[in-house]
Simulated assay, not measured.
Amino acid sequence: MRLTAPVDGGPCWTELGTSDPEAAKRFYTRLFGWRPETDPREEAGGYTVAHLGDAAVAALTPLYQESQPVAWNVSFAATDADTAVGKVTAAGGTVLLGPTDVFDLGRFAVAADPTGAVFQLWQAGSFRGAELFNAPGSLGWVELLTRAPERAADFYASVFGWSVDPSRRYPRWSVGGTDFGGMVTMDDKFPHEVPAHWLPYFAVEDVDAAGDTAARAAGTVLMEPTSVPEGPRIAVLRDPQGAMFGVYRADERG
């Protein structure tokens, strides 16, 4: 991600919905060095913000509905959440929740693109989103995995004004000329039951060491550390509760 702060239409936050928040706090603290702080207000529902130093970098939450999967979710910044959900439905997507106010922090909605990938919209109030990008332990890239890349490209261009690099090997998303993510076409190697989804990547100092740490903490290495041609060294991991996420070497740009 070349972004250094949230911008309209770009990824601004990522949060984990998990079946065991306390175990997740221990896992990610060990892996990334996060300092989790749980909002004590009852109406906050156990929402926990993870910090690196004083910078907010991600969140962890309990599962709020029985149908909610254990997963990382990616939020994209919107100047006006209500206008954005209108664009979502006009472009063939589905609004799953909201928009709704979150204290004085901002306005929030959950949507799904026409290929089935769920994402979130965030209209900033007092909270803009992540306060650190690309440094070890913080969000560094977001990736859409989908079985219908052309339909996805049209949808996100309509909703957010994104451009997509036409590379057949690995199309990249950009907003305002700034790269922030990529797209993978899900082929027969992906089990049929795995839906389209957004995958956040966190920067780390050492990808191989991160994989080893995750495994020792009862996580799983789904994709072994790999050096991408003309790109960074990456790996895909799964936490003990089943949420998938990626890591990449912080000082490498793909």
Rank of each mutant, 00 (worst) to 15 (best):
E205A: 15
V95L: 10
S138D: 13
D208H: 15
W13N: 04
A243K: 05
A209N: 10
F103E: 01
V207Y: 00
D239Q: 05
A217P: 05
L222N: 08
D212P: 01
F245G: 10
P166C: 07
G92N: 09
Q123S: 13
A77V: 03
A24H: 00
A203W: 01
G93D: 12
P149L: 07
D187I: 01
G129S: 14
W198I: 01
V194N: 11
A111D: 03
A117Y: 13
Y156H: 06
D101H: 02
R30H: 05
L96R: 14
A243T: 05
T146A: 13
G125T: 09
P225Q: 04
L144E: 07
S163R: 14
P11D: 08
A44Q: 00
P240I: 01
L237R: 06
H197Y: 14
P62C: 08
E150P: 02
A203N: 12
G92D: 07
W173T: 10
A112T: 15
G181V: 08
G17A: 11
D188V: 07
W34L: 06
R216H: 11
A135V: 12
A203T: 11
P191G: 08
D20C: 08
V175K: 13
D239T: 01
E42T: 06
R151K: 14
R169T: 06
S126I: 12
E252F: 06
W141N: 07
A112Q: 14
D208V: 13
R253C: 03
T61I: 01
T61L: 12
V57W: 02
G116C: 07
M1S: 15
D8Q: 10
G246S: 07
P21Q: 04
P11F: 04
Y170S: 06
G246I: 00
P62D: 12
G161V: 07
Q241R: 11
R2M: 13
G182D: 02
G129Q: 05
W198L: 05
P36V: 01
T220S: 13
W162D: 05
A77L: 14
K87G: 03
T100S: 15
E15T: 01
G137V: 09
K25C: 10
A203P: 03
T115A: 15
D101Q: 13
A90F: 08
D101E: 14
F127Q: 09
A90T: 06
V74C: 09
R151T: 09
F160Y: 15
P229V: 09
H192E: 13
D54L: 04
L63M: 08
A215M: 04
A109N: 03
R35Q: 10
L31Q: 04
V175A: 11
R147P: 04
T61V: 04
P171A: 11
A196S: 14
W122R: 12
T94P: 02
E43R: 00
S19I: 02
A135G: 05
S227E: 14
F245H: 09
F190R: 11
E131D: 06
F245N: 05
F119Q: 09
